[in-house]
Amino acid sequence: MNIFRFLGDMTHLISILILLLKIYATKSCSGISLKTQELYALVFLTRYLDLFTDFISVYNTVMKLVFIASSLAIVWCMRNHPLVRRSYDKQLDTFRHYFLLLASFLLALLLHEKFAFQEVLWAFSIYLEAVAILPQLVLLQRSGNVDNLTGQYVFFLGAYRALYIFNWIYRYFIDPHFTRWIACVSGLVQTALYADFFYYYFISWKNNAKLQLPA
């Protein structure tokens, strides 16, 4: 494992911890899209089916279990916790995420490494992860103001994707057998979706001002 991959995993973990901290400390999930969180839970559940079939390393297994458990916990809190669910911006979270599910599934049926149950679901999880942030970005754009922890959450999530690209570039040169085109192309698309957010994030950071997205 190279340093980019490791830092990518760590920023992914940090983003989830920031989200859990926000929900736990403020008992609020305002600014957070339940649809994006549900899509992520589905991404992890469909991608990590290999927990039952392949053992890669203790690190790999533990991280997978942490991602599954934390995403399910976040969805549960947003749906069922008496205080947290009241703060959910349901009227702003209107992105039609079923289209993302359907499109990702159809694409996975067409483009996969092998036509097998686990392989198709793996491709589905890669395509779905690439677009799962969209309901979250739309919600932030609609609400305009982004609270500090929510802004940090999205920033670290984007940083994770960017670091994975560096990881692939590194692997491309170090490991000539590394060909994972589905993941690499989807990863590029996914990272590109953050470009706009990153732009406004750095402006607010440079001006030491609160993060605001244009309407």
Partner: peptide, 10 residues
């Protein structure tokens, strides 16, 4: 890494 081999990334 074979194309449909073990996927070591998360």
């Amino acid at each position: 890494t074979e194309p449909s081999g073990v996927k070591d990334e998360l």
